[in-house]
């Protein structure tokens, strides 16, 4: 019989879906009658889900424009192209 402590140690592989089937079965058996571990596993998973959903943040237009003007300025900095030519031609 797996103990709660074992569940904690197997949790990462379980959630990643890489646990060997026999061990996964044992783990799920433990979960079936351990509300504490179910809550632990569910909230661990939910933490990952919520973090994934953070991903989409649109870049503000203002930052987009600042980036473009920064790049333009850099490109037209005196010496940039000549430095580059020296490097390219060796």
């Amino acid at each position: 019989m797996l103990k709660c402590r074992d569940i904690g140690q197997l949790l990462y592989d379980y959630v990643e879906g890489v646990l060997d089937p026999p061990i996964r079965q044992q783990l799920e058996q433990h979960l079936a009658d351990c509300p504490g571990c179910i809550a632990f596993v569910n909230t661990y998973r939910q933490t990952i889900t919520l973090s994934k959903e953070l991903r989409e943040e649109e870049i503000p237009q203002e930052l987009q424009q600042k980036l473009q003007s920064f790049i333009k300025e850099k490109l037209h900095e005196p010496g940039f192209w000549s430095r580059l030519r020296t490097r390219l031609t060796g």
Partner: peptide, 8 residues
């Protein structure tokens, strides 16, 4: 074993 209630 878990020693405290875990809130889901």
């Amino acid at each position: 074993m878990i020693a405290e209630p875990v809130v889901d």
